[in-house]
Structures are given as C-alpha cells and as structure tokens.
C-alpha cells in the first residue's frame, strides 16, 4: 500500500447562474491508489460528472467554480499548477471517456487521424510512428487496423465507443475517468465493451474512476465504490462490503428499488420523494426527508464521515461508533 495517486480533499463545487447557486459537490474526499478502480455511483444530479470535470480542471466557465478543497494528483495540487502544465496532464496522464461516443468524435476526420493527433501533440511522434502506435491501439480495443482510415459514421455505436477508449488510452494515462461509458450502448454490446475495459485495466494497471448510475456495471469492473447523493459521498467501501452489506439508508434504498433477476418481487420498494433541489438543499443530513430511519436530530446535525475497517459512511445512525 503506497501513497495515494489521486487524493481529493473536502472538495466543494458550485455553479452560479443568474438566479441561483447550485451546490453540485459538497465536501467530498477520496483517495485512489495506483491501479485501483473506483465506481462512482449516483442518480442524476448527484455530482458525479462534476467531480470528474473538477479533476480535469474542465468545469464549464464561467459558471462552475471549485469553492474550496483540493485535488492532489501524484503529489501535486492540481489547482496550483499553471494552465499550460495542466494541458500537458490532461489527455496525457489523466484522460476521460465521455458518455456519448457520437459527439466525442469529429465527424470530418478519419478515426485513425484523431488518435494519431493526440500522440503527435503529447509525444511529438513522427507521422509514421504515430500511425504505427494508432494501429496498435485500435487492435488493443478490438478494431482491425485496416479500419484506421474510416470515418466515424462508418462505425456502429459500440465500435465508436471503442475508438473513443483507444483515444483515451493513446498516451498511456495513469488515471482514466470514464463517465457512463456504456450507457448509450445495447446490453450485448455493453457486455463486450465492459469486458474489454476490465481486461485493459488488468493489463495496463491504469487507475480507473468509473462513473455510472448502474450498480451492475460497477459490480463487474470496480474494486471500490462510492455512493453519491446530492453532492456528498454517502458511503464508501470495498465493492463486496457495500454490495453485500450496505450501511447507509440511501444505499439500501437504491439496491431495493432495482428489479431483481434472481428473485420474484410483487412490488419494488422505492425511495419515497424526490432528489433534492441542489440550489436549495435540506438542512442537516441531505437525505433525511426521504430516509425511513429518520431521527429527530437528522434535520439539524450534518453527519460527519464515520470510518472503520476501510469503510466510510455519512449517517447519524453510525455516529456513536466513531
């Protein structure tokens, strides 16, 4: 167990619009070791994508802002380094795969050229060297090298996502952020792509943050999982621990609302109510209005993170344990 490769400390991110302040990320802390893969799970508006964009320094300007906290990558604080150096890190040491493969590729250039471009920028390779490496990368993701000269529209959705992944891997990144990489794909194609990601991860020992709303996807790929809700990490732990014994009431509710293949249910148990408005978060614990174990103090006291045996949970139920 070495030094953490990526370390997020008490990160807060806000989006300012004319009318309101959206509290997208509200004090999250995470540590990832080299080669670890973390699943970041949560529903719409939980702050998953915002977290990834803050790591890359790509929050939409001028609305999005890190208001406090810090992100350390390989010992350097990312907010302190100049934009020029950040550009070097982006795409090179940290790269990101976006949800929609259709919009991640430029329709007017052949896919091979788009991958080669990244190589030429970051490694100043010659045209021939870049082409050779591109062919290797495409084969790595299961695309025959003779398709290098084809344009994005000649590829199916699953193949496009493979191209995007090849592009992200082009510079041997140390950290890969994958934002819902298979959500736009059909289930049999998703299975192919997920297996590929899993194999690549094992082979290249890249650190991975997999953002997904699908607990099943995370279960197949990740070692650890963080459950996000309203910009906070409600629960964190080893994947087996969290999946077999969820601690936080939200995690419990999330698992219970998924229809199961392995048993028959007459009714699903759903979490009552709605995801809170991020511009007007509830007082105390953000989950308390929907929580079945709500206590009187839950709307007054913001729970702190309780930590033991490698697990973390933010809930007043467990507060006495600390």
């Amino acid at each position: 167990m070495g030094e953490a490769q990526l370390s997020i400390r008490n990160l807060y991110v806000e989006y300012h619009t004319d009318e309101e302040v959206v509290h997208a990320v509200n004090g999250i802390s995470l540590d990832l070791e080299q080669g670890e893969s973390l699943g970041l799970v949560g529903e719409t508006g939980a702050g998953k994508t915002t977290t990834a964009l803050s790591i890359l320094g790509l929050l939409p300007k001028p609305n999005g802002k890190v208001t406090s906290g810090s992100i350390f990558f390989e010992g350097k604080e990312l907010s302190q380094i100049p934009e020029e150096e950040m550009r070097q890190i982006r795409g090179n040491r940290i790269s990101m795969i976006f949800q929609d493969p259709m919009t991640s590729l430029n329709p007017i250039f052949p896919v091979g050229e788009q991958i080669a471009e990244a190589l030429e920028i970051h490694f100043s390779l010659s045209k021939e060297q870049a082409a050779k490496r591109t062919a290797e990368l495409l084969e790595l993701v299961g695309i025959p090298r003779n398709r290098m000269g084809e344009y994005p529209h000649q590829f199916s959705g699953g193949m496009k996502q493979r191209v995007v992944i090849a592009m992200a891997l082009a510079c041997n990144p140390k950290l890969l952020l994958a934002d819902e990489p298979t959500t736009a794909l059909d289930v049999t194609i998703q299975a192919q792509v997920l297996r590929m990601i899993r194999d690549l991860k094992r082979r290249m020992r890249t650190t991975l943050i997999l953002i997904s709303h699908d607990l099943g996807v995370v279960a197949q790929i990740c070692d650890t999982v963080a459950i996000m809700y309203a910009g906070k990490i409600m629960e964190y732990g080893k994947i087996e621990d969290v999946f077999h014994h969820p601690l936080h009431p939200y995690t419990e509710g999330l698992f219970a609302s998924i229809p199961r293949l392995d048993r028959t249910q007459k009714r699903l148990s759903s979490i009552p109510g709605l995801i809170p408005d991020p511009s007007n978060l509830p007082s105390g614990c953000v989950f308390h209005p929907r929580c079945p174990y709500r206590m009187d103090v839950c709307n007054q006291i913001v729970p702190t993170t309780v930590e033991w045996e490698g697990r973390k949970v933010q809930c007043l139920k467990y507060q006495e344990l600390s």
């Binding site: 049999t188 998703q190 197949q220």
Partner: peptide, 13 residues
C-alpha cells in the same frame, strides 16, 4: 441477452 446483464453481484462475470 440474459448472460450480458451486469448482475448486482460483484465480479459476477
């Protein structure tokens, strides 16, 4: 189709 479903069981595949 059924074997492609990502199950809720960690490492199930």
């Amino acid at each position: 189709l059924i074997s492609a479903i990502p199950l809720l069981e960690p490492g199930g595949w």
